[in-house]
Structures are given as structure tokens and as C-alpha cells.
């Protein structure tokens, strides 16, 4: 008898892959929403808008300071107790919400750092030729900040894809949840989890490859 049941694993691949779209959809939705929220939070932090700045710092502190799993349980099991309309919330929505809030806290800080990191003298140069603050942000600061922020933001996206696996604790049958069910039926736990690990790994590697190409393009202006 062989150590691994390869036929079982090969048969499992198409079954598991049919759940990959849901995993990727949750990650993509979470990423888009988190990015939008993080940009807003970063601008509040950069401009130090009174009141909102303190609130933003508290938000970031909480969502960075507590585990994602705790946050997901809070949204899915905890909050509906207080806010009854949330009893309608399904596991997928709760997961996207949790991913959005959790990762936006991290992403806001890296976007803020990227904006602040753009050489101050370029800002002065832009003002000196009569640009407005908006023009200066759009034409000079944000394009350069993007280049600095992209590698970290891509890392958060990769993290987020893996974090969608927590959705199975909210009863969502995504990639991880499907694997769990298949394994429970066949008792071939080792084979099932090796298979799903390899699927996650390949997806992440494909993204990392895309990330390297994107970075090479963004860095074109800066190579000597």
C-alpha cells in the first residue's frame, strides 16, 4: 500500500477547484472594499483631519490588535444579538465584511507611509509651478506612492486569499470547507489537506508572479 492515495487526490482536484471561484470572489470583493476604505483612512491620517484622525487611529488599533477569527465571530455570531437586522447576514457577507475591516486597517498604514514617503521637495516643486493640492496629489504624489505601496498591498491580497479559509468556521462551503467535508466522507484527511494546500500554494504563486511583473513595470522610471 502506498503512503498517499494519488488516485483519490487526482479525483479530488476538480471537485475542490469548483469551490475556488467562491474563495477568489470573497478575496477580490474584500480587496476592492478594503482598498477603498484604506485610501479614505490614509487620507484622514495624512491630512490629520480633527476628530476623524483619532477615530481612525482607534479603528486601526482595534482591527490590528485582535485576531481576524475573533472579528469574524463577532460579526457573524455576536453583532446580530445587538443589531437584529444583521440576523439576515450570511457567512459570505460576514466574511467579506471581516476581511474588509481587518485588512483595511493594515493597508491604511502602508498607504499612509507611502504617501508621506514621497520626497517633500517634489511637492514644493509642484506648488512652485502653480499646481493646486489636488493636481499635485494626482500627478506627482499618488503615482509615486502607488509604486511604493503595491508590493505590500499585494502581500495583503495574498494573505487575504488564505484568510478566506476562515469562512468555513462561519459555515461557508468554500475551498477549505469543501475539503473538510470531502475528508470527513473519505477519512483520507492527509490526502485531502495536502491537495488543498497545493491548490492554495499554486494560486498564491501565480499571483506572486503577476506581482513581480507589475513591480517591474512600475519601477521602470527609477532604474539607472
Amino acid at each position: 500500500m502506498s503512503v498517499l492515495d494519488f488516485d483519490y487526490m487526482l479525483g479530488l482536484v476538480p471537485i475542490l477547484l469548483s469551490y475556488l471561484p467562491l474563495t477568489l470572489e470573497m478575496a477580490a470583493a474584500g480587496m476592492v472594499l478594503a482598498l477603498a476604505l484604506a485610501c479614505g483612512l490614509a487620507v484622514i491620517r495624512v491630512l490629520k483631519i480633527p476628530g476623524l484622525n483619532a477615530a481612525t487611529m482607534l479603528f486601526i488599533s482595534f482591527f490590528r490588535g485582535t485576531p481576524l477569527l475573533v472579528q469574524l465571530f463577532l460579526f457573524y455570531y455576536g453583532l446580530p444579538q445587538l443589531l437584529h437586522f444583521l440576523t439576515q447576514i450570511n457567512g459570505i457577507t460576514a466574511t467579506i465584511m471581516g476581511l474588509t475591516l481587518h485588512f483595511s486597517a493594515y493597508m491604511a498604514e502602508s498607504i499612509r507611509a507611502a504617501i508621506v514617503g514621497v520626497d517633500r521637495s517634489q511637492t514644493e516643486a509642484a506648488l512652485s509651478i502653480g499646481m493646486t493640492n489636488g493636481q499635485l496629489m494626482r500627478r506627482i504624489v499618488l503615482p509615486q506612492a502607488t509604486r511604493v505601496a503595491v508590493p505590500t498591498l499585494m502581500n495583503y491580497f495574498i494573505d487575504m486569499i488564505k484568510a478566506t479559509s476562515l469562512a468555513f468556521t462561519l459555515g461557508v462551503t468554500e475551498l477549505m470547507g469543501a475539503t473538510q467535508k470531502e475528508a470527513a466522507g473519505s477519512f483520507l484527511y492527509f490526502e485531502a489537506f495536502v491537495t488543498v494546500a497545493v491548490i492554495y500554494w499554486i494560486v498564491v504563486e501565480l499571483l506572486a508572479w503577476g506581482q513581480r511583473r507589475l513591480e517591474a513595470r512600475l519601477n521602470k522610471a527609477y532604474s539607472r
Binding site: 517634489q122 516643486a125 509651478i129 502653480g130 509604486r147
Partner: peptide, 20 residues
């Protein structure tokens, strides 16, 4: 803005736009 359009500035450290 009008004053800035009537004066041009050359900086000690050049301050060129690095993305252009």
C-alpha cells in the same frame, strides 16, 4: 496661485518629478 505662476523656482536639490 497667481504669484506662483509669475515666479519660477530652481531648487538646490533639483526636485525633479521622479515619475516623469
Amino acid at each position: 496661485l497667481a504669484a506662483r505662476r509669475r515666479t519660477a523656482f530652481v531648487f538646490q536639490n533639483y526636485a525633479l518629478f521622479a515619475n516623469k
